[in-house]
Design a protein around this nucleic acid. Structure first.
Ligand SMILES: [Mn+2]
Ligand SMILES: [Mn+2]
Ligand SMILES: [Zn+2]
Ligand SMILES: [Zn+2]
Lengths: 152, 152
DNA sequence: ACATTAATTTATAATTATTATTAATATAAA
DNA sequence: TTTATATTAATAATAATTATAAATTAATGT
């Protein structure tokens, strides 16, 4: 935890940004909920629990800044809000997601999986890939089980 | 054109929906601009040119309906608006996109490319894939050329 | 330590995209 | 033609996000 905070502090300083108490509180929430996919409002409410004086606009600005620095990735699962996802330590690319169309659960895949596809994109389409967003929509393991149960 | 309209009409009727003049006008705009990635507002303005009496909410409702029927795919490139993309004729899955971070251009890839990846997702993660969203962020061919030019 | 400057935050207003409501209209069925 | 249902238009409401301006904080130089 403290190690990642230090690391992020360095990344901010490298671009002449400060790690203000508000920014640190925001980062801490993201670290504590690393598996989750929080909206700006979600983050705001969680930060507020420990730092009640923080403003919503500050959270938005902080998340925007962290996105620019590639510390978090902004993603939209189609439910009308942007969600913010801490990039895995040392990861070059954003990780992938499995969204269940039955229960809405979101699972993460940290394996790269796209190396071959990216080679094709670079060669056949002349496109220099910097990052990607890959989301699968389907039925999660639990919901598959539920269907089997229901039809028995 | 007329052929695809007829096809969509059937898809609507199969679910007890009517192809009203407003819906047809909307579909025609989507067909005419098949390569583009129009927002609801974009579609509205284009439909209005030919059917000035249409309301924005109707366009939203129509696009929502077409999404439910998998006739169009709703996608978000992170610029704050949903965009609507006609599904390629007969395509089982949504196609992919290359978004240039320099000029903002969006190119389409209709090749599947994900067959192997989906097999892994199904086997290793027990997730039954129904559809996907894959977008690459990077530098398009033109912008790569521009950089070379600029540094010569 | 004090003054100066720039960065940041807060509080709030404004904007924008999207959805909900309700009365009117069109369509289909009886 | 009547009746029921689906759909639309017009508008209001909502919700997410961004902009603004004054206040605060942090860094810098004296
Ligand atoms: Mn994630
Ligand atoms: Mn497309
Ligand atoms: Zn599920
Ligand atoms: Zn480009």
């Amino acid at each position: 935890m403290e190690h990642r905070i230090e690391q992020i502090k360095k990344q901010l300083h490298a671009q002449n940004y400060k790690l203000t108490p508000q920014r640190e509180a925001t980062v801490r929430v993201l670290l504590e909920r690393e598996e989750d996919h929080l909206s700006a409002e979600d983050v705001y409410l969680l930060v507020k629990e420990k730092s009640p004086e923080i403003g919503l606009a500050t959270v938005y600005r902080t998340l925007e800044l962290l996105s620019e620095l590639k510390i978090v990735d902004k993603i939209n699962f189609g439910d009308g809000v942007s969600r913010y996802d801490l990039r895995k330590e040392g990861a070059k690319h954003f990780h992938h997601h499995l969204v269940c169309i039955e229960c809405g659960s979101v699972e993460e895949i940290v394996n790269d999986l796209l190396e071959d596809v990216e080679k094709i994109v670079e060669k056949d389409f002349g496109f220099e890939v910097k990052d990607h967003r890959l989301t699968f929509h389907g039925i999660c393991r639990q919901c598959q089980g539920a269907v089997v149960k229901a039809t028995q």
